[in-house]
């Protein structure tokens, strides 16, 4: 049994289920008792009360610390940082405390914390409300990083994140929030660290995260019309990362394009490229392509933001370059708006 549900509703339902199942689970963040700016937590305070759905002042550093302390003391907080852009204010606690507590205590402390946040552009939010900063988080041992691309995954991954014994950063995408999908009536946890093959194909592998998964599917459809069958893989979690599924695919397709909305430069895609070439260099028939945003702050003006954002067209171009061996392959990376000539 399933229901057709938006991404926000699926996340909210996973939270409510977890709160019903486990008294230790509580939600904390700015305006969470009011549902938050995207209504993700709507209805929770009515059901669970304002002690367990706890509004906070605008104090990202302190509330992150509070959530960590509560987690160390046996609770299971789900902390919301309203925009990933404001994670900057919480990073000390996340990086220096949450990520390391288990290790530094020799295994004594655990921090079963889920830090929910959302990123991504496309809504004219400007450079401070649109970023994709997940690669910073993947650089910190001790954190897990989850990036769901659809409602069903969002629900199942949230359920798993709450059950996880350590700190998990759960990065939602604001442009996906009101997209609908069939979501199981009973939300089952989806194991962290398992990629999902969203589409199968033999000619090229596209690894895409979050909003770029939908773009990759659209690109694959367009490519299919010219006879190129793309396999689309969504890693779903960046840490832990399911390299095996991707390498197995590349061994078949011999071509790979990696796509995320974050800037290409220093992005998580670079890590994927490095890992795949190490594991499957001899299987590659072309340099690995990268699709992402150019190395510039996100512009506000609608035509500029649209040009800046990577999407279907950049993916199609990147795959065509690989397939036909165009000279543009020698560019250090394929940045949307910079190389889509």
């Amino acid at each position: 049994m399933s229901r057709n549900e938006t991404y926000v509703k699926a996340v909210g339902r996973a939270l409510a289920d977890a709160m019903r199942a486990d008294e230790r689970v509580f939600v904390i963040g700015e305006d969470v008792a009011e549902g938050g700016p995207y209504t993700t937590t709507a209805g929770l305070s009515e059901e669970f009360g304002r002690e367990r759905v706890r509004n906070t002042p605008i104090s990202e550093a302190a509330i992150t610390g509070v959530a960590i302390g509560a987690a160390q003391s046996g609770m299971r907080p789900v902390l919301e940082i309203m925009y990933i852009d404001f994670l900057t204010l919480a990073l000390d606690q996340l990086v220096n405390a949450a990520a390391k507590a288990h290790a530094m205590s020799g295994g004594q402390l655990t921090v079963p914390l889920v830090l929910r946040t959302q990123g991504g552009a496309g809504q004219r939010g400007g450079a401070q409300h649109s970023q994709s900063l997940e690669s910073w988080l993947t650089h910190v041992p001790g954190l897990k990083v989850v990036m769901p691309s659809g409602a069903a995954d969002a629900a199942g991954l949230m359920a798993a994140a709450i059950l996880d014994p350590g700190p998990v950063v759960f990065v939602e995408h604001k442009a996906l929030y009101f997209r609908r999908e069939d979501v199981p009536e009973t939300i089952e946890p989806i194991e962290l660290g398992r990629a999902r093959t969203v589409r199968t194909g033999d000619d090229v592998t596209i690894v895409a995260t979050s909003r770029m998964v939908g773009e990759a599917l659209a690109a694959a459809q367009e490519l299919a019309e010219e006879g190129i069958e793309a396999e689309v893989i969504d890693p779903r979690t960046l840490v832990p990362f399911d390299l095996d599924t991707i390498v197995a695919s590349v061994r078949r397709t011999n071509r790979l394009v990696v796509a995320h909305e974050a800037v290409v430069h220093g992005g998580f895609g670079a890590e994927v490229v490095a890992a795949v070439q190490e594991a499957a260099f001899d299987d590659l028939d072309a340099p690995i392509g990268r699709v992402g945003a150019p190395f510039a702050p996100i512009p506000f003006s609608p035509p500029l933001e649209d040009a800046y954002l990577p999407g279907r067209q950049q993916l199609v171009d990147a795959v065509r370059r690989l397939s036909v061996g165009s000279p543009s392959l020698r560019l250090p990376y394929i940045g949307a708006g910079l190389t889509s000539a």
Partner: peptide, 27 residues
């Protein structure tokens, strides 16, 4: 850190322990 005796820990980040202690009080 000595969880058995409720010493949930020292930190090298000056002041970083203060919000965490509030979290334990909240728990």
């Amino acid at each position: 850190v000595d969880v058995e005796h409720g010493f949930l820990g020292a930190t090298g980040v000056v002041g970083g322990n203060v919000p965490m202690a509030l979290g334990s009080a909240l728990a």
